[in-house]
Amino acid sequence: MMTSAIRACIGLLLVTWLIAGWAQAQVPAPDEPTYRIAKQLNCPTCAGRNLADCPTETCAQWKAEIKAQLDAGKSAEEVLAYFQDRFGPTVLQEPPKSGITAPLWAAPVGAAVVFLAIAGLVMWRTAQRGAPSPASDGTDAHDPFVAALEREVRAGE
Protein backbone atom coordinates (compact mmCIF):
# COMPACT_ATOMS: atom_id res chain seq x y z
CA MET A 1 0.00 0.00 0.00
CA MET A 2 2.62 2.41 1.19
CA THR A 3 5.08 1.43 -1.50
CA SER A 4 2.52 1.82 -4.25
CA ALA A 5 1.75 5.34 -3.02
CA ILE A 6 5.43 6.18 -3.08
CA ARG A 7 5.73 4.58 -6.51
CA ALA A 8 2.81 6.68 -7.75
CA CYS A 9 4.41 9.79 -6.35
CA ILE A 10 7.71 8.99 -8.01
CA GLY A 11 5.88 8.25 -11.24
CA LEU A 12 4.07 11.56 -11.07
CA LEU A 13 7.29 13.35 -10.33
CA LEU A 14 8.96 11.70 -13.27
CA VAL A 15 6.12 12.73 -15.55
CA THR A 16 6.30 16.37 -14.42
CA TRP A 17 10.05 16.17 -14.83
CA LEU A 18 9.69 14.87 -18.34
CA ILE A 19 7.09 17.49 -19.23
CA ALA A 20 9.26 20.24 -17.83
CA GLY A 21 12.24 18.75 -19.64
CA TRP A 22 10.31 18.46 -22.87
CA ALA A 23 9.14 22.07 -22.65
CA GLN A 24 12.71 23.20 -22.14
CA ALA A 25 14.46 20.57 -24.24
CA GLN A 26 16.10 23.14 -26.46
CA VAL A 27 17.12 26.75 -26.06
CA PRO A 28 19.45 27.64 -28.93
CA ALA A 29 22.42 29.83 -28.04
CA PRO A 30 24.44 31.86 -30.53
CA ASP A 31 28.04 31.08 -31.36
CA GLU A 32 30.85 33.54 -30.66
CA PRO A 33 30.84 35.46 -34.02
CA THR A 34 27.06 35.86 -33.81
CA TYR A 35 27.35 36.89 -30.16
CA ARG A 36 29.89 39.63 -31.02
CA ILE A 37 27.54 41.12 -33.60
CA ALA A 38 24.50 40.70 -31.35
CA LYS A 39 26.32 42.71 -28.67
CA GLN A 40 26.28 45.70 -31.02
CA LEU A 41 22.57 45.51 -31.78
CA ASN A 42 19.50 46.46 -29.82
CA CYS A 43 16.93 43.85 -29.13
CA PRO A 44 13.41 44.59 -30.39
CA THR A 45 11.77 43.01 -27.35
CA CYS A 46 14.10 43.51 -24.38
CA ALA A 47 13.96 47.23 -23.79
CA GLY A 48 17.34 48.70 -23.03
CA ARG A 49 19.32 45.51 -23.52
CA ASN A 50 21.52 44.40 -26.34
CA LEU A 51 20.51 41.49 -28.50
CA ALA A 52 23.09 39.11 -27.06
CA ASP A 53 21.86 39.53 -23.48
CA CYS A 54 18.18 39.15 -24.28
CA PRO A 55 16.64 35.69 -23.91
CA THR A 56 13.37 36.19 -25.84
CA GLU A 57 12.03 34.28 -28.86
CA THR A 58 12.20 37.22 -31.26
CA CYS A 59 15.81 37.76 -30.30
CA ALA A 60 16.58 34.13 -30.96
CA GLN A 61 15.24 34.63 -34.51
CA TRP A 62 17.45 37.67 -35.00
CA LYS A 63 20.45 35.76 -33.77
CA ALA A 64 19.59 32.93 -36.18
CA GLU A 65 19.44 35.52 -38.96
CA ILE A 66 22.89 36.82 -38.06
CA LYS A 67 24.27 33.30 -38.02
CA ALA A 68 22.70 32.48 -41.38
CA GLN A 69 24.26 35.57 -42.94
CA LEU A 70 27.67 34.83 -41.41
CA ASP A 71 27.44 31.25 -42.67
CA ALA A 72 26.61 32.61 -46.13
CA GLY A 73 29.98 34.35 -46.08
CA LYS A 74 29.00 37.90 -45.12
CA SER A 75 31.38 39.95 -43.00
CA ALA A 76 30.43 41.42 -39.62
CA GLU A 77 30.19 44.91 -41.15
CA GLU A 78 27.88 43.64 -43.88
CA VAL A 79 25.61 42.00 -41.34
CA LEU A 80 25.45 45.17 -39.24
CA ALA A 81 24.79 47.20 -42.40
CA TYR A 82 21.99 44.81 -43.31
CA PHE A 83 20.28 45.34 -39.95
CA GLN A 84 20.78 49.08 -40.15
CA ASP A 85 19.29 49.21 -43.66
CA ARG A 86 16.34 47.19 -42.56
CA PHE A 87 15.54 48.78 -39.20
CA GLY A 88 17.31 52.14 -39.33
CA PRO A 89 19.99 53.52 -37.02
CA THR A 90 17.83 52.73 -34.01
CA VAL A 91 18.96 49.11 -34.21
CA LEU A 92 22.56 49.97 -33.28
CA GLN A 93 23.73 50.01 -29.67
CA GLU A 94 26.09 52.86 -30.43
CA PRO A 95 24.26 55.58 -32.36
CA PRO A 96 26.28 56.72 -35.42
CA LYS A 97 28.14 60.00 -35.01
CA SER A 98 26.65 61.26 -38.28
CA GLY A 99 23.17 61.78 -39.63
CA ILE A 100 20.20 62.13 -37.35
CA THR A 101 22.17 61.15 -34.26
CA ALA A 102 24.97 63.70 -34.82
CA PRO A 103 23.29 66.29 -32.53
CA LEU A 104 23.14 63.68 -29.80
CA TRP A 105 26.92 63.38 -29.78
CA ALA A 106 27.46 67.11 -30.17
CA ALA A 107 25.17 68.09 -27.29
CA PRO A 108 27.29 66.89 -24.32
CA VAL A 109 30.48 68.36 -25.75
CA GLY A 110 28.68 71.60 -26.52
CA ALA A 111 27.13 71.75 -23.07
CA ALA A 112 30.42 71.11 -21.28
CA VAL A 113 32.19 73.77 -23.35
CA VAL A 114 29.44 76.37 -22.99
CA PHE A 115 28.96 75.74 -19.26
CA LEU A 116 32.69 75.95 -18.56
CA ALA A 117 32.99 79.07 -20.71
CA ILE A 118 30.20 80.75 -18.75
CA ALA A 119 31.80 79.80 -15.45
CA GLY A 120 35.14 81.10 -16.72
CA LEU A 121 33.56 84.34 -17.83
CA VAL A 122 31.84 84.83 -14.47
CA MET A 123 35.11 84.25 -12.65
CA TRP A 124 37.10 86.48 -14.96
CA ARG A 125 34.63 89.32 -14.67
CA THR A 126 34.33 89.22 -10.92
CA ALA A 127 38.07 88.87 -10.57
CA GLN A 128 38.49 91.98 -12.74
CA ARG A 129 36.02 93.97 -10.67
CA GLY A 130 36.79 92.94 -7.14
CA ALA A 131 39.81 94.28 -5.33
CA PRO A 132 42.03 91.31 -4.63
CA SER A 133 42.33 90.38 -1.01
CA PRO A 134 45.63 89.05 0.31
CA ALA A 135 46.25 85.40 -0.30
CA SER A 136 45.06 83.47 2.68
CA ASP A 137 47.24 80.93 4.37
CA GLY A 138 45.19 78.05 3.10
CA THR A 139 43.22 77.58 6.28
CA ASP A 140 39.56 77.35 6.89
CA ALA A 141 38.83 80.64 8.59
CA HIS A 142 35.48 79.49 9.85
CA ASP A 143 36.74 76.68 11.95
CA PRO A 144 39.25 78.29 14.28
CA PHE A 145 40.17 75.00 15.83
CA VAL A 146 41.07 73.35 12.55
CA ALA A 147 42.74 76.54 11.39
CA ALA A 148 44.97 76.57 14.45
CA LEU A 149 45.81 72.93 13.94
CA GLU A 150 46.70 73.43 10.33
CA ARG A 151 48.92 76.37 11.13
CA GLU A 152 50.70 74.21 13.65
CA VAL A 153 51.16 71.46 11.11
CA ARG A 154 52.65 73.90 8.65
CA ALA A 155 54.94 75.29 11.29
CA GLY A 156 56.06 71.79 12.05
CA GLU A 157 56.85 70.94 8.46
Partner: peptide, 15 residues
Protein backbone atom coordinates in the same frame (compact mmCIF):
# COMPACT_ATOMS: atom_id res chain seq x y z
CA UNK B 1 12.01 62.61 -37.57
CA UNK B 2 9.49 59.92 -36.71
CA UNK B 3 12.08 57.29 -35.81
CA UNK B 4 12.68 56.39 -32.22
CA UNK B 5 16.46 56.14 -31.92
CA UNK B 6 17.71 53.89 -29.15
CA UNK B 7 20.67 55.27 -27.27
CA UNK B 8 22.75 52.45 -25.85
CA UNK B 9 25.48 52.30 -23.22
CA UNK B 10 28.36 53.13 -25.64
CA UNK B 11 27.07 56.70 -25.96
CA UNK B 12 26.81 57.24 -22.21
CA UNK B 13 30.15 55.60 -21.49
CA UNK B 14 31.99 57.74 -24.02
CA UNK B 15 30.36 61.04 -23.13
Amino acid sequence: SGTKITVGPPFFDQT
